[in-house]
Design a protein around this nucleic acid. Structure first.
Length: 348
DNA sequence: ACTATTTGACCGTA
DNA sequence: TACGGTCAAATAGT
């Protein structure tokens, strides 16, 4: 279904003209309000001011909206001119000034303004040409892991795609703090092997955001696994009386945008490392996560919880995998040696 | 009501 | 022009 709606240059011109007239109209009203205010200064009390201020504020907003809409339309017509060489679209139109009072006395004025806003909004959401920049094609780094797990950052999924050389979908994520903190980090995740499972995560750019998952007192974090047949639980070892089991595969942005876990390592490392070269040197010592297969392993038992070093995962084929590191993360990479926490996966 | 994810259209690049 | 990265409306989840 194609929802591309093109406005003709004539339509754009009309909308821009009406927007400018609305702006002039409203600015005039604001002027009246201010003049009235200054003429009656001595008689007005605080209450009078309180009545006028919200009204004046609303008028200013309307003026700004008219300017914004007009500028957007003007900008769009210039862009279109560059693309299709139309000799009409790019022109700056002289505005025919109508009588202000005729516009402001119209009974349908308010409805007309809503229509205008709607027209401008629709114009700019429907025509997306040139509205996004493509990321650089150079990945910052790439990691393969046999499980899906949280990497210590809050991510927001924004798309998924079938790729030509794989039967598995690739999922696209951006940092949850892209807009509130301007964090440029992105990643995509794609399963690259069926059994035993293997997932490739490709990272683009470094996090500049402050918010990470592992920096508060919350003791449990749930990590996800695609099969949904297992639990992936993590505990702080100083708080293991209070274990709870929560279903896997919960990866809501909001859940993890509130930090849930303390890490003593992550923040200092993050501030020290400035570029890819440095981080690569650091990771080369630590990032290999080698899941050793356990030939005959029972389900994870409470003793696993007490030894502070065990990560066990049971896959669909009833095989168990163990990873001996204490879990910590930096930019998606598990690191060794955090004594405050350990991790265990448990069958549902 | 609000936020996150899904989904298919849109669009840049090779 | 095909591929795949991104957008945003629709939908799901809380």
């Amino acid at each position: 279904m194609v929802n591309h709606h093109h406005y003709s240059s004539k339509e754009r011109r009309e909308i821009m003209e009406q927007e400018l007239l609305r702006g002039r109209d409203v600015a005039n009203q604001l002027l009246q309000v201010l003049v009235h205010r200054s003429n009656n200064k001595n008689n007005d009390d605080e209450q009078g001011l309180m009545l006028i201020l919200p009204f004046a504020e609303d008028l200013v907003h309307q003026v700004l909206r008219s300017f914004t809409n007009t500028l957007l339309l003007l900008n769009s017509s210039n862009n279109n001119n560059n693309h299709n060489n139309s000799n009409i679209d790019g022109a700056i139109f002289p505005i025919t000034m109508r009588d202000l009072s005729s516009s402001s006395s119209s009974p349908s004025r308010s409805q007309k303004h809503e229509d205008l806003d709607e027209a401008c909004k629709s114009f700019h959401t429907k025509n997306r040409r040139g509205r996004y920049k493509r990321k650089s094609t150079e990945p910052t780094w790439e990691r393969d892991n046999p499980i899906l797990f949280e990497d210590g950052h809050a991510w927001r999924k924004y798309g998924q795609k079938k790729t030509i050389n794989s039967k598995f979908l690739r999922s696209y994520y951006r940092c949850s703090h892209k807009y509130d903190e301007g964090c440029p980090a992105m990643k995509h995740v794609q399963r690259i092997r069926e059994n035993p499972p293997l997932y490739r995560t490709t990272y683009y750019g470094h996090h500049t955001c402050k918010n990470t998952l592992y920096n508060n007192e919350e003791s449990i974090i749930i990590l996800e696994h695609e099969s949904k047949s297992s639990m992936f639980l993590s505990f702080n070892n100083n708080n293991n009386n209070n274990k709870s089991i929560i279903p896997a595969a919960r990866s809501k942005e909001q859940q993890f945008s509130t930090p849930t876990f303390r890490s003593t390592k992550q923040e200092p490392v993050e501030t020290v490392i400035q570029d890819d070269h440095q981080s690569q040197l650091l990771y080369d010592d630590h990032h290999e996560v080698d899941f050793a297969k356990l030939s005959s392993s029972p389900s994870p038992s409470p003793s696993c919880i007490d030894d502070n070093t065990t990560t066990v995962h049971k896959f669909d084929d009833n095989s168990y995998y163990d990873c001996g590191w204490d879990l910590d993360y930096f930019d998606g990479l598990p690191c060794f040696g955090d004594q405050d926490q350990f991790l265990i996966m448990q069958e549902v």
